[in-house]
């Protein structure tokens, strides 16, 4: 792995303990060395597959419909005011 485990954890938004960092670093390195076997294959002329069925531009008519109500959208919030999700202060 060519990225520091600290940087990777930050990119993944995970605050990890030192033990977890060491364990994951070892395990990820061993999985990546297994994954390296993909390089045995010459894929220079192979198109990548992102999706197995060829659907493109799936659109629907622009018609009004019902959607989730405010109370339903807020009902699982860990913290809220009457109308909003509440989060720790962002702007000083």
């Amino acid at each position: 792995m060519n990225i520091s485990i600290d940087h990777l954890a930050r990119l993944a938004r995970l605050s990890l303990s030192d033990d977890e960092k060491k364990l994951f670093e070892n395990q990820i390195n061993s999985i990546l060395s297994y994954v390296d076997k993909l390089n045995e294959l010459d894929t220079s002329n192979v198109e990548p597959t992102s999706h197995v069925i060829s659907l493109s531009n799936v659109v629907r008519d622009d018609l009004p419909g019902t959607s989730l109500g405010r109370e339903e959208a807020l009902m699982n919030a860990p913290d809220r005011t009457d109308k909003f999700y509440r989060v720790p202060k962002i702007i000083e």
Partner: peptide, 11 residues
């Protein structure tokens, strides 16, 4: 991308 290309080969 490499894995997506191998996916094509498997398909």
């Amino acid at each position: 991308k490499k894995a997506q290309q191998v996916r094509t080969l498997i398909k």
